[in-house]
Write a protein that binds this DNA or RNA. Structure first.
Lengths: 256, 256
DNA sequence: TAGTGGTCTAGACCACATC
DNA sequence: ATGTGGTCTAGACCACTAA
């Protein structure tokens, strides 16, 4: 490689804002690879080209490609498997069932939850939902309401809001028929991959209707979890409002 | 470096359990460095030897030391500063005020909290506390109760439990006099550095006494946050039970 | 046996901080 | 000018997987 570390000559003409014009080679390569991921060039669960091949293609050393992929692996965009290759991350693995659900039974047993679909309809979202999802005015959304149960006792009441355009065709029937993680369905059937999420958590008093569904008395304390999930490019793709009954379960978190 | 990647010949004699006898060089070096950190060889906030020096000392290449330190930086054990050196992580930086506190005002403003010390005493801990902290029977503990307020309104009621031995000499007076993060005090005055923590979160109804302290009605929903903080070697060093009033604040979490 | 990712080396040069 | 961490290279060998 020559001295010039700029792989984006076409873009390096003018920077009106104070943007870092140059970045390390491996960062540029990471960006290129993420863009191809985003474009769907490789299937979820499928292999991306080997480090040697990418190094040849980009005309850099293997170590540089390695560092780019290392970061993508740290971002959970990709999974490395020694001897086999590097694969596009997916929500399919059973290790990642409920990848974003932090609710755990108080005894150490692994969470085992059943689902019960309550509702699924397409409608105009309320303004706060519209704003959080960044939807244009007039755009519709799909609302899903469901219950998660442990040992036939309700534990979670989830309200999902999904943008209508990418999720056109999502019906109660298809939801009922689907086995496996929801996020796996989203990526397999609607080409929407959730990459990361943020949650806002509060304690609330159970409203009457929700209390009934969860089998608690009205006014009982519940955990309110508002999750906003993002796909590539930090575009919000799901708003999920959950009410957790934390008598036999708790929300666990690790602080590093 | 010769072919032998074992730097721990003295320890590699017998492995009764199925332990990995060999690990990459950089892992072994990381372990050695962490042990020295743990032994207090370098002050918090102080510099550790340069990569070149460590490479020479361990008789490995700079790249190998680099990878070891990279992981330590990812673990928040150490902070790298280009041009200056690598420094032992500390709770002193204002960027890490309330490093483990995830409570944020609903408007985006940065959290600004006042403290009010309610209690500080040495006593025999109840069995559940004793068990969580891994204390020997009969060992005492220091209990601290305090209030955090935003704009003079109570937001958090914290109950802390600290093992008596390392925290001997912790009194209400010293707590009152201390300015800055508690964890900074622990590392500066008691040589206890908190590295990571786990939290269990539930929604609970406010008990009468705690409700009064937080200025809410008894039975109001509160966030119950039980945090167990660990020092080097995964030894638990603090149990903190907090009740959060989530009317104007919320617990925020990032899911990767 | 061949191909993959994982580790390690030695040396070059860059960016930054300090004197 | 010197020393630090940060990037990049080229090549070697190891560990694992699969045909």
């Amino acid at each position: 490689m020559e001295d010039n570390h700029d792989m984006t000559a076409a873009e390096s003409t003018s920077y009106p804002e104070a943007a870092p014009s140059f970045s390390p080679l491996y960062q540029q390569i990471k960006l290129l690879l993420v863009k191809r991921l985003q474009a769907g060039e490789w299937q979820p669960g499928g292999a991306i080209p080997s480090e040697m091949e990418l190094a040849a293609r980009f005309k850099v050393s293997q170590g540089t490609v390695r560092k780019a992929i290392d970061e993508m692996a740290a971002d959970n965009l990709v999974v490395r498997r020694q001897g086999k290759g590097t694969f596009v991350a997916t929500h399919a693995e059973q290790a990642t069932q409920y990848r974003f659900l932090r609710l755990t039974p108080d005894d150490g047993t692994p969470p085992a939850l059943q689902r019960r679909l309550l509702e699924c309809r397409s409608m105009r979202p309320p303004p706060d939902v519209r704003q959080l999802l960044g939807l244009p005015a007039g755009e519709t959304a799909v609302q899903v309401r469901r219950l998660l149960l442990a040992d036939d006792l309700p534990v979670v009441l989830d309200d999902l809001w999904l943008p209508g355009t990418p999720f056109r065709g999502l019906t109660a029937e298809r939801l009922q028929a689907w086995r496996g993680p929801l996020y796996r369905m989203f990526e397999a059937e609607f080409s929407v991959r959730m990459i990361r999420a943020t949650e806002k958590i509060r304690a609330v008093a159970a409203p009457a209707e929700e209390a009934t569904l969860l089998g608690v008395v009205a006014g009982a304390p519940l955990l309110s979890v508002e999750r906003l999930s993002f796909t590539y490019g930090d575009r919000p793709m799901e708003l999920r409002r959950g009410l957790y009954h934390t008598a036999t379960h708790h929300y666990r978190n690790e602080l590093g």
